[in-house]
């Protein structure tokens, strides 16, 4: 009888905890988490969708927001979030989402991200200029063994002329500048849309091999 009860008890607990380990341990990741992760790693493939407006933002709603806001889109994952200004360290401004992802900018160019996985640890380079030519941009990432990998990309600046873009119901006349950057086998292209007052209205910038590109749109008027 005792054994039967014991077994039922164990089975019930096993059922409760089958999908996620229970407990009050801060570090409560368990075997099932590992199994789930391995399963998703072998079956799932990230599907990309084009940046849109998945948050249902309207200009009317944005008028109620008094602090500066930017919209960030992870192109590859189609995920969107609003960014609010968090901290300034000299010429770098760090913005944060509500769920603790941060993006740091120097003159509108992304110099760091945190909370995205394979983050951009740091970057250095000049402000975006409308003149054709070449600039160097330095990117630091961590490899799979957590060692910093610092790469210098040679970027060809390509002025693309005037483009009218729309950001939540407002059209802006901008000049678009592309930078095609190469280091070894790796090539990517960043795009920047600057308004006539040299404000960065929109940009699409490379973060890392795994994260891909981040599109940033300035939602201020």
């Amino acid at each position: 009888m005792g054994t039967v009860l014991e077994m039922r008890y164990a089975a019930a607990i096993a059922l409760i905890c089958a999908l996620s380990a229970c407990g009050n341990q801060t570090d409560s990741l368990g075997g099932t988490d590992v199994a789930k992760a391995l399963f998703s790693a072998t079956t799932a493939r990230a599907t990309g969708t084009a940046p849109g407006n998945s948050l249902g933002l309207t200009r009317q709603a944005l008028e109620q927001v008094l602090t500066p806001v930017q919209l960030a889109t992870i192109d590859q994952r189609g995920q969107q979030a609003l960014l609010g200004e968090l901290e300034v360290n000299q010429d770098v401004v760090t913005w944060s989402t509500l769920d603790d992802v941060t993006v740091s900018f120097r003159n509108g160019v992304i110099v760091a991200t945190r909370g995205l996985g394979n983050d951009l640890m740091a970057a250095a380079g000049p402000a975006v200029q409308g003149r054709s030519g070449t600039v160097n941009r330095v990117y630091t990432h961590l490899n799979g063994e957590d060692q910093p990998v610092r790469r210098t990309f040679a970027c060809t600046v390509l002025p693309r002329g005037t483009e009218t873009i729309e950001i939540i119901e407002i059209a802006y006349v901008t000049s678009r500048v592309s930078e095609r950057c190469t280091s070894g086998d790796l090539t990517f292209q960043n795009d920047f849309w600057l308004s006539s007052d040299q404000k960065m209205r929109k940009s699409r910038q490379w973060i890392s091999e795994d994260v891909g590109f981040l599109t940033i749109e300035d939602l201020r008027r």
């Binding site: 992802v101 909370g115 996985g117 394979n118």
Partner: peptide
């Protein structure tokens, strides 16, 4: 690493 890196919430920004 599977997926490229450890996903953590962002750390505190350094306050100068």
């Amino acid at each position: 690493r599977a997926g490229g890196g450890i996903v953590t919430s962002a750390p505190d920004a350094v306050a100068r």
